[in-house]
Design a protein around this nucleic acid. Structure first.
Lengths: 222, 222
DNA sequence: AATACAGTGTTGCAATTGCAACTTTTTTTA
DNA sequence: TAAAAAAAGTTGCAATTGCAACACTGTATT
């Protein structure tokens, strides 16, 4: 992920953060940090650590809306934290810096090269995030659990150019990310194993099929 | 949707488009405009008309990935048009302008106020689009057809502050947008009607339940 | 080390959904 | 305006899924 401060040296970064009325926060592991983001006008940037945005909807379903890591941005300007359904959880010790949304979009101080660069960086980060959202939508629009799992594996596998997929989740969270029932997912993973399409060792999944064949065939049928 | 040229007067707009190596295109209704966007480095802006980005995946499922209207942006920088699965279709006569992605992100001409303003506009548009993507994800993560429909209706209804929902799709496309089977959707709409939760007249749906109650109750039970 | 807790695996069963096939209605086109 | 095409409605049935309940395992916590 592009660094939001890419091409901005330390001194300029200080000036920038001051002019955007930034505040820094530290959140210990397992703390909920929701309260700061209830207002519309804050943009969070993660300096280190990572967060999960979790939604528990009116039917009691738990959904992992995002995992946000280093250099990524978040805030209610891009995801409405409406009602009491959302929780933002620090999965590790996490440092964030919070900026004023309006300052970024309506700043008029044209002669600052670093501000210019910052805008370009934010736009690039935003485009990358959009790509991820679309990938997520491609997964969620698959109609069976099997196809959701395979689409998810394929995307990660393509990203790293490897047949090994290292899950960033435990299996409970993976089910909540794919919006499927955990036990039904477990059942389908078992099927995939038994048919020889994947191999599972902890959080490492090995893809044994030919991704580019429209029918999923094993690489080594014997 | 914010206009990409908001706060940029006509003359500056001309200069801007020239400096970003833009090209304009016109596409008649029902034409496919895919070919221009196969490369990674183009950003399209819709001047008027609208487009649909449709995916037909390896299982033969048709999914409407986006509907893009006036002032909205699109391109493979935010949605990978991988393989032969995608089609971009002009649903009306549509004019677009195409810019070079790299020019926008790595332009160094700092003294141009209009360029600065353009970046701010693009960022705002991008954030709005992200919000829409997240709303879409909130719909798709619902586990039943009924809940997908109701979530979709609620989002539109909230947007306009009205109990009337005017569908931007025909029912076939709505099913492809919600990633559900058309006939199963039709069945569920019938149930909702019979239970008195909605009323359907063509593309206008009237919500008869109290949105803020967690259990969907009719407003007029008698 | 003992205990509690979170995560995982398994299974039967009922509910929901997708699919296929067909009819009816609406819209488009020649 | 007649014919063709697209969209919408309907239904039975098989496949898939969610749910609930429970056992097992590994990891924290005191």
């Amino acid at each position: 992920m592009t660094n939001p401060f890419h091409n901005i040296d330390f001194k300029d970064r200080e000036k920038l953060l001051k002019s955007l009325e930034s505040h820094s926060f530290h959140f210990p592991k397992n703390n909920s940090i929701f309260s700061i983001f209830e207002q519309e006008n804050h943009i969070g940037i993660i300096l280190n650590g990572y967060l999960q945005i979790v939604r528990i909807d009116s039917n009691g379903n738990r959904i992992i809306m995002e995992e946000i890591g280093e250099n990524e941005i978040f805030g209610s300007f891009m995801l409405s934290f409406k009602s009491a359904e959302y929780e933002i959880l620090a999965k590790e010790d996490t440092d964030i810096v919070v900026l004023e949304y309006d300052q970024i979009l309506h700043h008029q101080d044209l002669n600052k090269k670093y501000y210019f660069q910052f805008l370009q960086n934010m736009l690039e980060i935003s485009f990358q995030k959009m790509k991820e959202k679309n990938e997520r939508i491609e997964i969620l629009t698959k109609k069976t659990i099997r196809n959701k799992l395979l689409e998810y594996f394929n995307i990660i596998s393509s990203k790293y150019g490897s047949k090994y997929v290292y899950l960033p989740f435990n299996f409970t969270d993976l089910a909540d990310y794919l919006a499927i029932d955990r036990s039904a997912m477990s059942r389908e993973l078992k099927n995939l194993k038994e048919e020889g399409l994947i191999e599972v060792k902890g959080k490492r999944i090995t893809l044994l099929y030919d991704k580019f064949s429209s029918i999923y065939k094993m690489i080594h049928p014997y």
